[in-house]
Design a protein around this nucleic acid. Structure first.
Lengths: 200, 200
DNA sequence: ACCTGAACACCGTTCAAGT
DNA sequence: ACCTGAACACCGTTCAAGT
């Protein structure tokens, strides 16, 4: 059941990152409720109270895990944008589908990311920053697309929220089994196309 | 802190509904983690173990609360559809905005409804049914709209998932503070319009 | 600086028992 | 049928202490 305690020692903040890494594994395997400060300490072979030297409380650890999830998403978006030199429109459609795929591949992580009862504005600035990064990439991409068109009713930011929100929702419905995973990609692309064409 | 125990007695399933009602209050006030079988028993003035006679475990209670949330949403949709005799298109746009408003008004309830690590397909059929009801209403509404058009690429079900997913996502982003509540309504309407026009 | 150990109040869950 | 009470293993959190 519980893994044999490691004999490894942790120094200089290594324990902090080890806690986050172990929590990510636990999260995807057993759900958010399985993330436990004592349980993590057990798995890593340190005393039950050791995690408290790196996180104020359980909520702070969860916030860090969620931030790691947003970082992962940002990384993925950066990579895919680099290798695409498509037209902006089809690039945005592909990005929507890619976001939905991320959600389906990381269900529990995604749920933690968006269940941020933890991110109550003031308390976790790192999480806020990490969560805003993907939106920033999207906004600049959309700015490119809209530059040159006469569009003024909607700002790039409005458009980004519209498209991001759509991807968010399709992913969530797919997680809940309301949309079959096989249909999610098709619906995501068709919807993204309609939304984008509505801007122009 | 803890409310004074009630002297009331519960019979014939009254305790079951009292537990759900109390959980809904707790949920919106203090978040999902505050929903506790022992805590509910305390508030209702029964023994700590009494809830176990009505729910197999904590997850079953949460599933019932989530189902109550979907029922509330269905009720709201039925009422608003009854008083609207608008054109189907503007009715669908209004419905999207109304869904987003529901999310913003019931943040914790909504999060519980969609965080259904509890609804693992087989275990909570009542929750599944309740969750499917709003979609059913939407699908028939869209069927009316599409009847008569030559549209065949997307089924009413596909269209419903597209629009529902969009509302879902905009609501979620508004909860997370990524969209200002004041902007959510405008973005929801503009996006819904684009999506619907994409079908036609 | 980083980790340990004891202690406290709380929870979910099981079981045997009451009416 | 419905509720109670004792018991167990677990958690989050605080505090004093070690190196």
């Amino acid at each position: 059941m519980t893994r044999a305690p490691t004999t490894k020692r942790y120094h200089h903040g290594e324990l902090r990152s080890a806690l986050i890494a172990a929590a990510l594994v636990m999260l995807e395997r057993d759900g958010p409720a399985a993330i436990t400060l004592r349980g993590l300490a057990r798995v890593l072979g340190v005393s039950p109270m050791a995690p408290y030297h790196h996180f104020d409380d359980r909520a702070a650890l969860l916030a860090a895990v969620a931030a790691a999830g947003f970082d992962r998403l940002t990384q993925r978006k950066i990579e895919s944008q680099a290798q695409e030199s498509d037209a902006p429109k089809s690039s945005l459609i592909a990005g929507t589908a890619s976001y939905v795929a991320f959600v389906i591949e990381n269900p529990n992580l995604f749920r933690l990311m968006l269940s941020n009862e933890f991110a109550d504005q003031h308390r976790y600035p790192d999480l806020r920053r990490a969560a805003a990064a993907p939106a920033g990439l999207l906004i600049s991409r959309i700015g490119d697309l809209l530059a040159g068109t006469g569009q003024t009713a909607l700002s790039p930011r409005d458009c980004a929220q519209m498209l991001w929100g759509f991807a968010h929702g399709i992913g969530t419905l797919a997680l809940d089994g309301q949309i079959a995973p096989a249909d999610a990609d098709r619906i995501a692309r068709a919807g993204a196309r309609s939304i984008i064409e509505g801007w122009l």
